[in-house]
Design a protein around this nucleic acid. Structure first.
Length: 484
RNA sequence: GGGCAGGUAGCUCAACGGCAGAGCAGGUGCCUUUUAAGCACUUGGUUCAGGGUUCGAAUCCCUGCCUGCCCA
């Protein structure tokens, strides 16, 4: 709202009511209102005549002459309140100055209306915060997608299903921490600002440290630091926090996103697959109430997480998808085959990217899963251990659920000489930066270890049936609206 | 970056070349167990912005901004 413009009548009237409260000697932005009970608790342990104090936001008001019904919403739910001339006496007139959206504290006793609704008869009330702007429609909620993301608080007030998704997200994150801690993993924190952004292939955000006079980058992955902690003697660690990638926005991408990485010394990738399988099943049962998920995009009928989940090699997947023994074909044959099967390729795509895109399009996108795809080509995964029998593949898995890559898991590469070569001779789009400090650490000896990464936002999308990453991040990045 | 769809009252949406409307919210009045309360009356618009076509534009055209979806 620009300063010079005449405020709308709606806003003007609310400010007039604000002044009316003040003229009655009441601060419309009141102080504390302690010792309240949650609405959920009162409704659960409801008793006729029970005394209670509640605080929350007014979501509806039904005036009826000398009495009034309203609904109050707090963090735990909503409850009807009732007041009449007898119950609040002189202050009944003040009730007329309340608006939808006002935050009030009430005190009174419980009763049931003749239709059976559990209700609080108000004996005393305080205005705790005057709302100067109207709430979204009380039964349509807030549909405007842009407003929902830009003013998430309105989305949360008006749309209960949105609140529920974020509660689920909170439970998922909490359960991940508990699950790992119960198994002896320690949560650690490593740098978010790194001199060399390593551990993944992505464009970083850059910043600058004035005192040292050096550029720094927001991390694209914590991997190289977590491995240094393995070198230092930590054996089971995880980090569950934000990564940053300076890339486009989409249904599946937000520039900052939450990632779990866990490392387990002396374990290997099959062990990590078991850990991940039991973690995700645990989350589904704990948070979604079962192992059957609906596919968020609607691309698959439903997803059954009942373990054990199948394991299949990358080569076998491609053989089934293309009908040919992919890796025995020449580069030209692969490209031709991929294009015949509808994979779009850039003319200058490197060989490994032809394989990668073919896999993504013909296997990943079509797999409802869950499926552990194992033994990816070595060039695709520079930080994983090569297979003993076949050094052209690495001892890793890629977990696919709902047509999406959900989590990678590795037998980590701990040979410093091979690691250096692999980082120096990378090809294709997944090229990573060389971090000398990391290589020196490996030279001091890193125990063999298994590692996993789990994108939390996409996991939450999957477990809550959300179609967009913006529905599981409170404040997704949007282009800022220009000031008028 | 490309394609498609969209942006109208606080909210949810109509009107699609001919008076800018409805429901809810808001205001006034009536109403002491209502609950999408009810009844009566009623306020509220830079139709995203700018330009063009036209007797006349929310509507058609162009440019820009923002959003969503699909593709890269």
């Amino acid at each position: 709202m620009s300063e010079t413009q005449e405020p709308s009548e709606l806003l003007r009237l609310r400010r007039e009511k604000l002044a009316a409260w003040r003229s009655r000697g009441i601060d419309p932005f009141g102080g504390a209102f302690p010792d309240t009970t949650s609405i959920a608790e009162i409704l659960t342990n409801f008793a006729e005549g029970r005394k209670a104090r509640l605080a929350g936001r007014l979501l509806s008001i039904r005036e009826m002459g000398k009495s009034l019904f309203a609904h109050l919403q707090d963090a735990s739910g909503r409850m009807q309140i009732y007041a009449n001339l007898q119950s609040v006496g002189d202050r009944f007139a003040d009730l007329k100055l309340l608006d939808l959206g006002d935050i009030v504290g009430v005190e009174g006793d419980c009763f049931q209306t003749k239709t059976g609704e559990k209700t609080l008869r108000v004996r005393h009330f305080d205005l705790l915060s005057k709302s100067l702007r109207p709430l979204p429609s009380k039964w349509h909620g807030l549909h405007d997608v842009e407003a929902r993301y830009r003013q998430r608080y309105l989305d949360l007030v008006a749309n209960p299903e949105v609140r529920e998704i974020f509660h689920q997200r909170i439970r998922i994150v909490r359960e991940i921490r508990r699950f790992l801690e119960e198994r002896g993993f320690l949560e650690v924190e490593t740098p978010m600002m790194q001199p060399i952004p390593g551990g993944a292939a992505a464009t970083p955000f850059s910043t600058f440290h004035e005192a040292l006079g050096i550029p720094l980058y927001l991390r694209i992955a914590p991997e190289l630091y977590l491995k240094q902690l393995l070198v230092g003697g930590f054996e089971r660690i995880f980090e569950l926090n934000r990564n940053f990638r300076n890339e486009g926005l989409s249904r599946k991408h937000n520039p900052e996103f939450t990632m779990l990485e866990a490392y387990w010394a002396y374990a290997d990738f099959p062990r990590m697959a078991e850990l991940l399988e039991s973690l995700i099943c645990h989350l589904a049962e704990k948070v979604c109430g079962g192992l059957r998920l609906s596919s968020p995009t609607g691309a698959f009928p439903s997803i059954d997480l009942t373990p054990p989940w199948p394991r299949k090699s990358f080569a076998d997947c491609l053989r089934e998808a293309t009908g040919k023994d992919w890796f025995s074909l020449g580069a030209e044959e692969r490209r031709r085959l991929a294009e015949e099967l509808g994979v779009e390729l850039l003319p200058n795509a490197e060989e490994i990217d032809v394989t990668r895109h073919t896999f993504e399009k013909l296997v990943e996108a079509r797999t409802a899963g869950p499926l552990f795809v194992t033994h990816l080509p070595t060039e695709l995964v520079p930080l994983a251990r090569q297979n003993r029998e076949d050094p052209s593949v690495v001892d890793v898995f890629e977990l696919i659920i709902g047509g999406q890559e959900v989590a990678p898991g590795y037998s980590e590469l701990n040979d410093p000489i091979v690691q250096r070569e692999r980082l120096e001779h990378q090809a294709g789009e997944e090229r990573q930066k060389l971090d000398e400090d990391f290589l020196v650490a490996l030279e001091h000896g890193m125990p063999p270890a298994g590692g996993i990464g789990l994108g939390i936002d996409r996991l939450v999308m999957l477990l809550t049936g959300s179609e967009s990453i913006r529905d599981v991040i409170f404040f997704p990045l949007l282009r800022p609206k220009e000031a008028p």
